[in-house]
Simulated assay, not measured.
Amino acid sequence: MKVKIFLHYPDDTPAGYVIFDGKTSKVYDENGNFLFEVEGIFPPKPRKINYEWIDKVLDEGLEDARKRFILYVGSRYLVNIKGLSEDEAIKRLEEFYYKKGGGKIYESWLKSVLRGVKNKGLKPWSLKRIQEKDKEMYSLISKVLNKQT
């Protein structure tokens, strides 16, 4: 069974169509010219990414690896996913940092990190990536996520 899916540009003008045969999608422009073929349905369904675990870690705090968490996860999440302003993000990250453990975190470092991730549009690392790249941080995050509330 073949299905014809009509495509539209964001302004709702016709952008062509797709013929999906159950296995592959053949994509055509608005004039019927073949453009390309892909496995599966096109356009793909957007994946919903669950970021709840990041909020839980930010709320609970970490005993160690806090700066790495801010650099690779917290800053990216607060600025590029939640859309917080720089001041709001700094406040939230400082609260997270001082929740558990001592040490000092400089506002100038936080501002630099936040501006960098915002300018580059960086997304937070996934738990899978943290597990692959930073086993220590993954272990600490797992303790927080597995803690019964």
Rank of each mutant, 00 (worst) to 15 (best):
E94H: 08
F69G: 08
K128R: 11
A65N: 10
M137P: 05
K2D: 15
N146M: 07
Y98S: 03
K56R: 13
D59K: 12
V57D: 04
G101Y: 05
L71V: 12
I54W: 11
I19H: 09
W53N: 14
I70G: 08
F42G: 12
R92T: 09
D11N: 10
K2F: 07
G102Q: 08
R115N: 12
E63L: 14
E95Q: 15
K23W: 04
G16F: 12
S142R: 13
R115C: 06
G116E: 05
F6N: 13
G103L: 02
K118D: 00
K56Q: 15
L7S: 08
K111W: 05
N50W: 00
D134E: 15
Y106A: 11
E107T: 14
D12H: 10
H8T: 05
P14Y: 01
G74A: 12
S126M: 09
K2C: 12
F36Y: 15
I5M: 14
F96W: 02
D55W: 03
N146V: 09
I105V: 11
K100G: 06
S25D: 09
E136T: 13
L78A: 03
G74R: 11
P46V: 09
Y28T: 03
K45L: 14
D134G: 08
N50T: 00
N33S: 14
I90H: 05
F69C: 13
D11V: 01
K26P: 11
E136S: 13
L62D: 11
K143V: 10
E37Q: 08
L78Q: 04
S75F: 04
R129P: 01
P44E: 10
E63Q: 08
E107L: 08
Y97C: 06
S112F: 14
H8V: 12
I49M: 09
Y97T: 01
N119P: 01
E63R: 09
D21W: 02
Y51V: 07
G16H: 10
W125D: 06
K118T: 00
L145R: 04
K48R: 15
G101T: 08
N50A: 05
E60N: 11
K26I: 04
K104F: 12
G16W: 08
I130A: 05
K133V: 13
I81A: 01
Y98L: 08
S142W: 06
T149D: 14
R129W: 07
W125H: 10
D11A: 01
T149G: 15
A89F: 01
G83W: 01
L78W: 05
Q131I: 06
W53M: 15
D64I: 14
L78F: 02
E60L: 08
K147R: 15
V144M: 14
L93P: 02
F20E: 03
V117C: 00
